[in-house]
Structure formats: C-alpha cells, structure tokens
C-alpha cells in the first residue's frame, strides 16, 4: 500500500496508468470488426459481448484512477478510496447487456425454427423472396 500512496502523491494516478484505456478501445475495435465479418448469428452475438466487456473494463479503469482500495469506509476518511460512481454505472450496464444477450438468443431460436439455418446469407435471401 505504500507504493500506491507514493505513486498517487506524485502523479495523481495509480499504477495501471493509461494502458487500460487503450486496451478497452482495442477491444471495442476487435468486437466491431467481428460483428462485420462473421456469417453466423451466434458469432455476431458473441462479438457484441466482446464490445460490452470492453466497456466494462473502461469503466473499471476510470473508477480506479485514484486508488484501488475498495470504497468501503471504516471510519477512516484520510486515505484515498476508489471512485464509486462509475462502479454504479457499470453495474447497471452489466445488467442491461445481460438482458439484451438473453433477448437476442430468444430471437435466434425463433429464426432457427422458421428458417432452419443460422447463416445470414440464406436467411436474407429467404426474407427478401418472401416479401415479393
């Protein structure tokens, strides 16, 4: 803990530095390119999950900029705690992304029962032919 105190007094940031922000942006890029290039519905949904996880990492990084001590106060207000507001944000975000994942899998089941394939090329040509 003395290292954390020393680095915080010198720079205002903890040891993780800016690496975590760059990694989360890289994770979002990987997820977006995965959504573009995959031909299976389940892989698209998994790539969306990668994007969501990177956002969670970003917010955890924001929250631990001041310190990495959990913000549970035992009566000692002098040491620096981690920031609790982004942690609240990210809990809501995790719940919402979980609900969206479940809903997208339900839609995948309905589509599979109707079109009997998970490949988007076949589904889209059937969809457009039905419309005429």
């Amino acid at each position: 803990m003395e290292d954390v105190e020393r680095i915080y007094k010198q720079t205002g940031y903890t040891m993780t530095g800016n690496v975590i922000f760059y990694m989360s942006v890289a994770g979002m890029l990987v997820g977006t390119i995965g959504m573009l290039l995959s031909r299976n519905i389940i892989k698209k949904i998994l790539s969306l999950g990668i994007v969501e996880t990177s956002i969670n990492t970003l917010y955890t990084g924001i929250s631990s900029r001041r310190s990495i001590i959990p913000p549970i106060v035992n009566g000692d207000f002098s040491i620096a705690y981690a920031d609790p507001v982004p942690q609240a944000v990210i809990i809501t975000g995790i719940v919402i992304s979980f609900a969206l994942l479940c809903l997208s899998l339900v839609f995948a089941i309905i589509i599979y029962n109707k079109y009997h394939t998970m490949d988007i090329g076949t589904i889209e040509s059937n969809f457009e032919r039905e419309k005429e």
Binding site: T32, L48, L100, S104, F107, I110, I111, N113, F127, E130
Partner: peptide
C-alpha cells in the same frame, strides 16, 4: 413470426452497438 424476429434482431444488434 419469423420475419418480425429477423427485423427485431437486426435492430437489436445495431442499436446495442450504437449505445455502447
């Protein structure tokens, strides 16, 4: 119906990406 599920899935994937 199958058509509605596909339209809704398209909307879901694009909208979640945008909101991220």
């Amino acid at each position: 119906k199958g058509r509605q599920a596909w339209a809704s899935l398209k909307y879901l994937l694009l909208s979640s990406l945008g909101l991220n």
